[in-house]
């Protein structure tokens, strides 16, 4: 059984180990502020074009796909890509009008239909592309960020075969620090930093995409509104 007051006991044990006297209980939160974090490479903020370029390059080297420019110009290519991947259903979260708009535009380009979350969570699901507006994107690493803030779901980028992340240039930040500094004050239950598709090298070190999550990640860089 877990002894009563085991937390205090642990803290006291550690305190004693560190400072050599056993009796004084540690005072939680009374200590000095934490040490300064390791200095990360910090550069002056980059221009939006630079960020887009960095983001695209980094994501591509993490086996992600990037499409950018005029949406209606590459829409057929996107539809074709999804068809080739065998996608038959699209998952769009509620309350994401941009994703919905894209899904509607894609609909005539393949035999696609809208999937529901519950069918994806209950057995035999169709090959699905989850389309969702990213909350942040990070130029340094080519990372898309999704969180559970405001009742958002993270399933379109998790339980599907293809994850289509919509990235508005104005949500691009330089580094992970820039995202966490916004979220640290009141972190949501889940923050997911997503860089490329799901992958594994666990069998003979052979890189295989789509271990448990999406096999394909397509970042669609849209125009700023």
């Amino acid at each position: 059984m877990e002894p009563l007051g085991s937390k205090d006991a642990l803290i006291r044990r550690i305190h004693a180990a560190l400072h050599g006297h056993d009796e004084r209980a540690a005072e939680p939160g009374a200590g000095p502020p934490g040490p300064p974090g390791p200095s990360a490479p910090s550069a002056p903020p980059a221009s939006v074009e630079k960020r887009v370029a960095h983001f695209s390059e980094a994501l591509r080297s993490a086996a992600g796909t990037v499409m950018s420019g005029d949406l209606y110009a590459f829409l057929p290519a996107l539809g074709e890509a999804l068809r080739t991947l065998g996608v038959t259903a699209l998952l769009v979260p509620e309350g994401d009008p941009v994703a919905r708009e894209l899904a509607d535009a894609l609909m005539p380009l393949g035999p696609f239909r809208l999937a529901s979350t519950s069918e994806l969570l209950h057995g035999n699901s169709p090959v699905t592309a989850g389309i969702q507006s990213a909350e942040f994107a990070i130029a340094e690493s080519g990372t898309v960020v999704q969180t559970g803030r405001g009742g958002r779901t993270l399933l379109p980028g998790l339980v599907t075969e293809v994850h289509v992340a919509l990235v508005r240039p104005d949500i691009l930040v330089d580094r992970m620090e820039d995202v966490l500094s916004v979220l640290a004050a009141d972190p949501p239950r889940t923050i997911s930093f997503i860089t490329g598709p799901s992958r594994t090298g666990d069998i003979e070190q052979t890189l295989t995409l789509g271990a448990h999550g999406p096999k394909t990640l397509i970042a669609v860089i849209t125009q700023s509104p």
Partner: peptide, 24 residues
């Protein structure tokens, strides 16, 4: 570990699901 600039996924998880959260 693997030479990746960042792993495919990094999850930062805080507490339990809040009222109104979609999942968790």
């Amino acid at each position: 570990a693997t030479g990746q600039p960042i792993s495919s996924y990094v999850s930062v998880l805080t507490g339990v699901r809040r009222p109104g959260d979609a999942e968790g």
